[in-house]
């Protein structure tokens, strides 16, 4: 009976103030979907770092007029360095082949290039990609090197972009969360006011505090849960419609987001939404109900 009573109170409460309830649910869902997006992006960047740093190489481009002796010295320096995991020598022909593959879409551009215009290079994989600086310093001053390029520099820039997107969505989530919480507080105040007579009688006859507060707190929790489900739906639709279809091109940089990770957001968002609403409602009640 008590469960039925409480559930009935919750539904009546949500319906009594339905415009406010909708506003609360919408802000909650936007905030939570932003939170979900930023968590997904965080997981994604982590995964991408593992993936890309594993394949990262330092390219040492050689000058045109390099002598065999100089080449020998460079080879020696690379081989003797204990930072190196793997090294590969790339001839002009290898370079051309790779170039043709890379730019296969634009045959005119490829045809304009011949093997002679591409430099020879060493492709070195480091044991720890972050030790690039030490490795490059070791080669400094050797004759015959035109340029040393560390791919992780380029990756860092890409990751910086992802990090700022993640930060931006966290900030938006934070602002929306503040709005959502204020709405929760306001809704609870209105609910407590419209039930002030009942609450006064309940206090008078000795209803327990949880019994008085539960309908209000649950009202907020139900709204939070609906908001979480809507937020999750938005994330899921965004993944299916945008990443899997419209923006599929992005997935050449972005490693694919596993559906499992997206599904994982449902319990996360539901938990955060429910908990945060409950705590806000409870704190509001402490001020407005004085039980």
């Amino acid at each position: 009976m008590r469960v039925k009573y409480v559930l009935n109170e919750v539904l009546v409460g949500l319906w009594r103030n339905v415009t406010m309830t909708i506003a609360m649910i919408i802000t909650m869902s936007v905030s939570l979907s932003m939170l979900g997006a930023s968590v997904l992006l965080y997981m994604q960047v982590d995964q991408m770092k593992d993936y890309y740093y594993g394949n990262i190489q330092v390219s040492i481009f050689l000058t045109e007029d390099i002598t065999d002796g100089q080449k020998e010295a460079i080879d020696q320096a690379i081989t003797s360095s204990d930072l190196v995991k793997d090294k590969k020598y790339e001839t002009k022909e290898d370079a051309l082949k790779r170039f043709q593959q890379l730019w296969a879409d634009t045959p005119d551009f490829v045809n304009a290039i011949n093997a002679d215009s591409l430099p020879e290079s060493y492709r070195v994989t480091l044991k720890n990609p972050e030790q690039y600086k030490a490795f490059a310093d070791g080669l400094q001053g050797l004759a015959g090197i035109r340029q040393i390029i560390d791919q992780s520099d380029i990756l860092e820039e890409v990751f910086d972009i992802f990090n700022s997107i993640q930060l931006a969505s966290l900030i938006v989530a934070g602002f929306m969360a503040v709005a959502a919480l204020l709405l929760v507080g306001n809704t609870i105040q209105v609910a407590a006011y419209s039930k002030r007579r009942e609450v006064a009688v309940m206090k008078l006859v000795g209803a327990s505090n949880w019994f008085i507060q539960a309908p209000f707190v649950l009202e907020a929790v139900v709204a939070g849960l609906i908001g979480a489900i809507l937020g999750f739906a938005a994330l899921f639709i965004a993944k299916v419609v945008l990443l899997d279809n419209k923006l599929q091109a992005l997935t050449t940089i972005l490693t694919p987001i596993p559906t499992g990770n997206v599904v994982l957001m449902l319990p996360l968002l539901a938990g955060v939404g429910a908990l945060v609403s409950a705590v806000t409602a409870w704190i509001t009640l402490r001020f407005y109900l004085k039980v």
Partner: peptide, 22 residues
């Protein structure tokens, strides 16, 4: 201090129900 939207019976029963009586 009666609840205006409840009958006499419901007003009295309310006091019992909110303290957990069936």
């Amino acid at each position: 201090r009666l609840l205006p939207n409840r009958t006499a019976y419901e007003n009295v029963a309310f006091a019992l129900e909110v303290i957990g009586k069936t």
